[in-house]
Design a binder for these strands. Sequence first.
DNA 1: TATTCCGATAGTGAC
DNA 2: GTCACTATCGGAATGAG
Lengths: 210, 210
Amino acid sequence: MAWMDALNRYREHPERYVAHGDGDDDLPVLYFDSDAVVLRDMFPKATVHLLVIPRPAEITFRHPAVALTREVQDTIQLAIQWAKNYTFAQFVDQFPESLSSYDLQKFITEFVLVGVHSVPSMSNMHVHVISRDFHSPSLKHKKHYNSFNTAFFVPWDQLPLESPPDKTQAELTIKNTPLKCSYCRRDFRNKFKALKEHLDEEFHNHFNKS
Amino acid sequence: MAWMDALNRYREHPERYVAHGDGDDDLPVLYFDSDAVVLRDMFPKATVHLLVIPRPAEITFRHPAVALTREVQDTIQLAIQWAKNYTFAQFVDQFPESLSSYDLQKFITEFVLVGVHSVPSMSNMHVHVISRDFHSPSLKHKKHYNSFNTAFFVPWDQLPLESPPDKTQAELTIKNTPLKCSYCRRDFRNKFKALKEHLDEEFHNHFNKS
DNA sequence: TATTCCGATAGTGAC
DNA sequence: GTCACTATCGGAATGAG
Ligand SMILES: Nc1ncnc2c1ncn2[C@@H]1O[C@H](COP(=O)(O)O)[C@@H](O)[C@H]1O
Ligand SMILES: Nc1ncnc2c1ncn2[C@@H]1O[C@H](COP(=O)(O)O)[C@@H](O)[C@H]1O
Ligand SMILES: [Zn+2]
Ligand SMILES: [Zn+2]
């Protein structure tokens, strides 16, 4: 199933996919070293949504929730930090006025999520680094949103888990947890459209270019 | 709720709504006497779909499954028979070649359903007389189809029942019974669109104007 | 808990 | 199980000398 393996090319040959930085290319790789690759998620679920892919073939197909031991985490820590800094830089660039009240640490702590999905779909191990606005046209349904806003999302600091999460239980968590605004926790039950409109309001209240 | 009472005008004043028979009027009443009115269903679920409405005010709001006693049935029997004959005549008129293998009795027995819904929505008591092709643009979802093709439909010959059917049970029957072709019993599970396409094929295999 | 397309299911409003 | 509109939920395909 080829779509599952779409991330592998970036792991094996990141140098072939390096973004030019001229703004109108669609090459995704932003950073790489011998241990990890940082790239733009092709279907970003927020204003900034990056993937950090560990490169070693021996671990790429293991479950991230158990394979991301402290030792493995250490090997990609530089890439993770690069991604977090990049996220902040993107917001500073796009919304300089709104970001004046944040410093790097405060912004990252309060507004950047780092972690993995309980049940990934893509075969190659990857870590999500994503801004918590969830303001994006690619965020299209409840599963997208709840995969980052429920226990389905396993934060970096809680890794590794002792055993891989149960798939059925994880599915129920996604399906049955009511949608809650990531800013104010307001409960939208299963009203995804209403949540989207509210997230749009929240975003424009928090960030603007003027 | 006015929509529930839409049939009442035909019960009270059938003479105001008599079809001209010139083909391009939308007046629905085809026959009436002092006991009953026969009219075209406004949203026909098959090629011919008629309603027979008993006229007495004393029984019009009672549940048809229990109020259509043998005595009441007798009073509208003429109208019922008129509707069955009309259904046959319509098919003979539209598909003379295809109908040559049928006589009136065979056609009515095999291809005309007469009965009531376990849980009617329209307030005024009415009996459905409908051809079993279910080939109509107004047949738009599973509920429409299963309301004539499951135990939700109570045939004329089984009336009256001892007590009104349980609403919840009737709803489950509609929802959970798989869709089966009324001609060949083929099972379409919950695939309504596929059933529609198959019914279209069946119809054109059984009936054509050439 | 990949995307996309399509269709089935469900809630609402109707004066 | 009135209709018509919207939105949510759900399965299937996704490849291709
Ligand atoms: N071809 C692709 N290139 C880059 N990212 C992708 C591609 N296909 C899917 N994705 C993203 O990969 C992520 C996989 O998430 P998951 O497997 O659930 O942890 C999702 O956020 C997708 O948007
Ligand atoms: N205004 C109307 N005039 C004639 N028939 C109608 C009207 N509104 C609904 N119907 C039909 O009345 C029938 C009522 O079905 P039921 O109450 O389920 O037995 C349905 O077949 C509708 O298509
Ligand atoms: Zn909010
Ligand atoms: Zn069939």
